[in-house]
Design a protein around this nucleic acid. Structure first.
Lengths: 354, 354
DNA sequence: TTTGAGCATGTTCGCGTTAACACGAAGCCT
DNA sequence: AGGCTTCGTGTTAACGCGAACATGCTCAAA
């Protein structure tokens, strides 16, 4: 083989497998009649370039369709301007909203984001994601994953890599940004108590989730503080089906007048079960959810729920991470974003006891 | 040669602002007593390395915590092994599911993905995203955006960059992967007609969306083919509120016995309106949605809907793009993924006419 | 006039990696 | 034995960029 390449056309788009490459600074420089360093200065927006020269260079760039090679830039500068995001498949409403706001906040800060999916939340998969991360061109990482999976994973992140953890309060090495789960659950529980309900039942998230645990704890503490009975927890897994199953159980018990579901999806399933069993909401049973997903206002009846400020969570986590990358702040802060209760039509005064 | 011997700690983490860098191949090579080329061979998994040497190198890598510098790799090879994704904020269920499956498919193909968010679907924002994309380290792009915004955007993508478009059938320059909207809408409409309904009403998506347009057209054609009346379209915007508003209008009309909502969220709003107006579903009115989102099975009543195979859409689009990147296939194919009807409890036989 | 400060621009070099080639040591054929 | 391939390994160069330094020019102060 080995074509002697006599033609030497600088195009680089050989018929053979040769990789086509775009024009480089040198090409632009030649076109504009300047040195490549001057092209670099224009490209990076330095001010110490003559206006005349600058416009010549810009014209050359446009003509050749030049776009800077970020790999070379990153290699030179040691910075990728890129943030990695480790998360489970985008199945949960909260994660998505968080991701969304992170994406926008990152873009505003001049960073792009790379998704590192973890198809199945097993420890092994998490380890794989972390390994993959090690090979990734990122300046820092935001992790949106149940914390104990991180703790248990024996793989460790590259020591120097800044990390921010979202949505799971581990008390540990990394800064944490999260919704104030405890405050939200208290809001929900107190709302029901204030409506005159003797106590509040709870359909929780899975034991594997810190958020779920926090909400359950806070619900429990709130009841305790008010001196009320603590009904047994019905453990769910965030899914509508779990809510439905919980609802079937609860509707058999005539004492139940108020239920706090740990998320809106389970509240939806719960509502369905109550409808099917002929229990009226909020006439006989009041229901509160958690998340305030877009659809909640159209549930039947429209759901009273705890609104999470995902935008703020995203913004803060990016902010924290970028500061860490710039080595401005390293201490392991914990930042809790408060929630607010959105009262709709699924809650009402306790029915008069029979 | 000639190591300056005295100060010269090769750590690189100076007290001054100097950038910390991880160990390079050269460091590993020195540690293992081989050349850096051999380290490269081990790192890239070549087979022509002596077992003994390989394990020495691996040990050195582990000891120093070496991780390959992807920037240098990309610079050298001209490939980033990274796919850019342009999409609107993750507000729609379909986009999220698609993104999710793309992320996984890309990971399996050895590519990472970079999100390029477009906060507001205006032409200007799209242009900005495209510009930003130009500076991104991507080998190809998947666009999940209403097509006409692309057409109207006068910014053009770097000519050489492979592109695949999802979720909007533009008849154009780029390969398209999409759910077969027409087939799905036909399925929904025919299902209702087969149940004996005289005709089917439609709450559509926004005019700006190709998917919405396709579904509306197909609904219309199906009615035409069956020789039925064509009720006026109620135009929505995918939101539950739009479905609710549509429902209020429809429930005033006693002739309405069957409604096809262009997505599940609008179907949800529609259901609420019908409940509020005391119209029973499916007793008096049957409802079909489109998407089969996770929650749909827990609506009240559980929603009959058109299931989209988002996984397949994502898989195919990645597959197509990767093939284009490898220059294996360039023609502008269009790939439609069929849907299937999921019959639940929101549809039933037409009521006997009064 | 001399000196030097300020500015636009050019030149050199190295970031970490891998393709291409070079080389010596085997093993296998005539 | 001589020539051939195969195999493990080393050497060199280049990918595109930008920091650091060098150059030459202008203008103001001494």
């Amino acid at each position: 083989m080995a074509p002697p390449s006599q033609g030497s056309d600088s195009q680089g788009s050989d018929s053979a497998g040769r990789r086509r490459r775009g024009p480089s600074m040198a090409d632009v420089a030649r076109e504009a009649g300047v040195s490549s360093q001057t092209v670099s200065r224009v490209s990076t927006g330095r001010t110490n370039v003559d206006d005349d020269t600058r416009s010549r260079v810009l014209a050359a760039m446009r003509k050749l369709g030049y776009r800077p090679n970020s790999a070379a830039r990153a290699l030179r500068s040691g910075q990728f301007r890129n943030i990695g995001i480790i998360m489970f498949t985008l199945s949960s409403f909260g994660n998505i909203r968080t991701l969304d706001s992170i994406a926008i906040a990152a873009a505003n800060a001049g960073y792009s984001i790379t998704l590192i999916p973890v198809p199945h939340p097993t420890q092994g998969e998490v380890s794989i994601a972390f390994t993959r991360l090690g090979e990734q061109a990122v300046d820092g990482v935001i992790i949106i994953i149940e914390a104990h999976l991180i703790d248990e994973a024996d793989i460790e992140l590259p020591a120097e890599l800044p990390v921010v953890v979202v949505d799971s309060s581990l008390d540990s090495r990394y800064p944490v940004v999260d919704t104030d789960q405890a405050q939200g659950a208290r809001l929900a529980t107190e709302h029901l108590l204030n409506l005159g309900h003797r106590t509040v039942w709870h359909i929780s998230g899975p034991a594997s989730s810190y958020s779920a645990e926090r909400r359950r704890e806070s619900w429990s503490r709130t009841l305790l503080a008010a001196g009320r009975d603590q009904p047994p927890v019905i453990e769910g897994d965030w899914s509508t089906d779990a809510g439905y199953r919980g609802g079937l159980i609860l509707s058999e018990n005539p004492d139940v007048t108020a239920v706090f579901a740990a998320n809106d999806q389970m509240a939806l399933g719960l509502l369905r079960a109550l409808h099917e069993c002929g229990r009226s909401v909020p006439g006989q049973i009041s229901v509160v959810g958690f998340d305030d997903m877009q659809e909640s206002s159209s549930f039947w009846p429209p759901l009273t729920t705890v609104h999470q400020e995902f935008d703020e969570v995203g913004r803060h986590s990016v902010d924290l991470l970028v500061r860490a990358i710039k080595q401005e702040a390293t201490e392991a802060t914990t930042l809790l974003v408060p929630t607010r209760l959105v009262v709709r039509a699924s809650t009402g005064p306790a029915p008069q006891s029979t």
